[in-house]
Structure formats: structure tokens, C-alpha cells
């Protein structure tokens, strides 16, 4: 098992913390994990991304140059990283902020209007975890329980009141991925 996951979006969309959550979940399952942020001369409102590698064998370079999965939280991220996804890889797209479609037909793409769905659940900040829920369902890279367990470690204690709503977000994403799979099967 090897997944090189690239999570990209605007600064402030929870891109880095989503990656940490995923890495933590992999660690809880005793897998090899590495997390690395883009740390260029970034600016407020600019793009942010991080790479998360989860693997059964030791990880060579933690930098994800050819992602098996891309989470594109905004349009510039999709444009920049779509060409780099491996063949038969997965693109998870936040269609709330991306009004274009994936050009390639050799990857699997799933569109999730995460911002609207997050508002419906009741907190705009959980959009990233809806998409993370879909990723977990589609790849099986870690279990959903491990992600919830990681929330307890990654969120500071004073934010533990947000665990339930984040769990709901992960569930929502899982359901959407299941539906997408049914659709593809038909």
C-alpha cells in the first residue's frame, strides 16, 4: 500500500491541518507516514499545499511530486496539480470553488460542493473534512475510526466540542463517495 496525497487550496482552508489529521491517522495504524508543507515565500490569500505519504514500507522522499490522490480545494490548485496526478489516480474537487472540470480521462474525479454542504451541516470550516471523508472511503488508506481518533489528538482540548461536527462532515463525505461509486458502477 502506498498513497501520496496532495492537499491544495487557499491559506486558511485547513489544507495543512487536514493533512496532519490524515498523517496522524496513518500513524495510529502503525503505518509509515510523512507530512510536508509547501513552505515557499507564501502570502496571505495565496496558495497552500501539503503532501501526505502513507505507506507500508519506509518513505523515501516525503515530497509528493506525483500524487496518487489530489484534493483541490480551489481552482488554481486543480490547474496546477491535475497534470501531475498518476494514471488511474484520484482527483477530489471542491466544486464550490472550482467551476471547471478535470481535463484528463485517465483519472477518477469526484466533485463535492463542500462549502455549501459544510454550511448545511452548520460550520463552514469543516468543508475540508467532508472531502477527507470521501478520500478515506475511496482509498481505504486509513479507517474512518482512526481519523476520528486523530481529531482528539490534533484538536487542542478546548476545541474538542468540534469533534462531533467534524465526524458528521467525515460521514457526509463517506456517503457521497459511496453514491459516486454506485453511479460509476451503473
Amino acid at each position: 500500500m502506498f498513497q501520496g496525497i496532495l492537499i491544495a487550496g487557499f491559506g486558511g482552508q485547513g489544507v495543512l491541518s487536514t493533512g496532519q489529521l490524515l498523517a496522524y491517522a496513518g500513524m495510529l495504524e502503525d503505518k509509515h507516514v510523512a507530512w510536508i508543507p509547501s513552505y515557499g515565500p507564501e502570502m496571505r490569500g495565496g496558495t497552500a499545499n501539503c503532501g501526505v505519504t502513507i505507506s507500508d514500507i519506509p518513505i523515501s522522499s516525503p515530497v509528493v511530486t506525483e500524487p496518487t490522490v489530489l484534493i483541490a480545494m480551489n481552482r488554481p490548485s486543480l490547474e496546477k496539480f491535475e497534470p501531475k496526478i498518476v494514471q488511474d489516480g484520484i482527483a477530489l474537487i471542491n466544486s464550490s470553488l472550482v467551476d471547471t472540470e478535470v481535463q484528463r480521462d485517465d483519472i477518477k474525479s469526484v466533485y463535492i460542493n463542500a462549502n455549501e454542504l459544510a454550511e448545511e451541516i452548520g460550520n463552514s470550516k469543516i468543508a475540508n473534512n467532508i472531502i477527507l471523508g470521501a478520500l478515506v472511503e475511496m482509498t481505504g488508506v486509513v479507517s474512518g475510526e482512526s481519523v476520528v481518533e486523530s481529531l482528539k489528538k490534533v484538536l487542542p482540548p478546548k476545541r474538542h466540542n468540534l469533534i462531533d461536527i467534524n465526524r458528521e462532515a467525515l460521514e457526509k463525505g463517506k456517503k457521497l463517495a459511496e453514491e459516486a461509486r454506485v453511479k460509476t458502477a451503473m
Binding site: 500513524m27 507516514v33 516525503p62
Partner: peptide, 10 residues
């Protein structure tokens, strides 16, 4: 190198 400083690992 910068990668070792920036990366997270268990």
C-alpha cells in the same frame, strides 16, 4: 536540509 526541518514524522 530544509525537508528534514519541515517534515512531520512519527
Amino acid at each position: 536540509d530544509g525537508i528534514l526541518g519541515q517534515m512531520m514524522e512519527p
